[in-house]
Design a protein around this nucleic acid. Structure first.
Length: 357
DNA sequence: GGGATTTGACCCAG
DNA sequence: CTGGGTCAAATCCC
């Protein structure tokens, strides 16, 4: 049943991706004349490649018997995995009251994403990705030098948020933390994050002033987050809004303290979730992306630009974030595309793009 | 005192 | 049977 559902979804997504690729190719054609910027062309090319890459990944994707999708991080374009197979509904039901988590383990669809994060601080498991995590276990893993720490969302008890993550030092490089995110944040924290992120994006789009948004929003993200990642993570954050088009905005931002004026904007969130997250665009990229968006952003922005990733036996692809300082401070303009270039495929519904004024 | 972490035991999947 | 993931009591920390 699950499988059938996911197959249907795959087909839709596949079609969607291919169609998008086609549209992008058309756009590219329109950019062939000299007046068009090279950056824009590059951007379109990257997007086309990405679309096809994604389509291919759908074809090749291993949908395991456990219903788990193994997704390359670099494909985390849009965390709209709330579409089909989203754990959201199933999880909340089946999980909370049922104490038998082990059954859930098998039946619950989930997405495993691994991110290697350069951790200059060496603070084990203290990676602050913006969410509140509570450690609930640690285990020595066979063949691994360092133990793996298990964290779950602090709001699990109060809000039934099922997001979890695993943090482990890389064997090869102790300064690198391998963080595996699982499940989706269903706590209000993520909604607030989503809301404020999208609001900013919407404002940005409406004003066409990227820098303004950046100044208001980014600093909030990077400064208030007390990152433990060191430079590496910050970098990603900085890059963040350069590619908001690709990433689902609601999951693109690290958690930031909730601003009073932003609290209570439930309508926007609800609209967002239904119209954008649920549109089945790419179910494979759900909330997990939210938790490690910095890397995920990097992955997106690096797409087609030589990002390295390696296959892992367990969960598909591990993204390797390298050169932690190389992009720090990279100005948004470096990407050389304007909002006009952005593909707000997540906002196709005008109403969903509305925001409170 | 309350919340977070530690750690050994337990359970399930393979 | 083994290893990974989770639970929960004990402990720690603020």
């Amino acid at each position: 049943m699950e499988k059938r559902k996911s197959m249907e979804w795959e087909q839709e997504t596949l079609t969607s991706e291919l169609t998008q690729g086609k549209e992008l190719a058309k756009q590219l054609m329109n950019c062939l004349h000299p007046s068009a910027s090279q950056e824009k062309r590059d951007f379109l090319i990257s997007k086309i490649l990405f679309s096809y890459e994604k389509a291919l990944s759908l074809l090749k994707r291993d949908v395991g018997s456990d219903g788990e999708y193994h997704i390359p991080n670099t494909m985390l374009e849009s965390p709209t995995s709330f579409g089909n197979g989203s754990p959201m509904s199933e999880i909340s039901d089946q999980d909370c009251k049922n104490k038998n988590v082990f059954k859930k383990r098998k039946t619950m669809p989930r997405w495993t994403e691994e991110v290697k994060v350069y951790s200059g601080t060496g603070l084990d498991g203290s990676l602050d990705d913006g969410y509140s995590w509570r450690k609930y276990g640690q285990k020595d893993i066979l063949g691994a030098t360092y133990p793996r720490g298990y964290y779950r969302c602090t709001h699990r008890g109060t809000q039934g948020c099922l997001a979890t993550k695993q943090v482990q030092k890389a064997d090869a490089d102790p300064s690198t933390m391998v963080v595996t995110y699982r499940g989706e944040h269903t706590c209000s924290q993520v909604l607030q994050l989503a809301r404020s992120s999208v609001l900013s994006l919407a404002k940005q789009a409406s004003t066409g002033n990227q820098n303004a948004t950046r100044e208001v929003e980014k600093p909030k993200a990077s400064e208030e987050m007390s990152f433990s990642f060191g430079a590496g993570l910050r970098v990603k954050t900085e890059d963040l809004d350069t590619r908001e088009d690709d990433i689902f905005p609601s999951f693109s931002f690290p958690s930031t303290p909730i601003e009073p004026e932003n609290v209570g904007d439930h309508i926007f969130c609800a609209t967002l979730m239904e119209n954008d997250l649920m549109d089945g665009y790419s179910p494979t990229f759900a909330s997990p992306a939210a938790t490690f968006e910095p890397d995920y952003l990097q992955a997106t922005s690096s797409f087609g630009l030589g990002l390295d990733y390696v296959q892992t036996s367990e969960s598909g692809l591990s993204e390797i974030i390298s050169a932690p300082t190389s992009v720090t401070n990279s100005p948004i303009g470096d990407f050389g595309f304007s909002l006009d270039d952005l593909d707000f495929h997540h906002f196709e519904n005008p109403e969903s793009f509305a925001y409170e004024s």
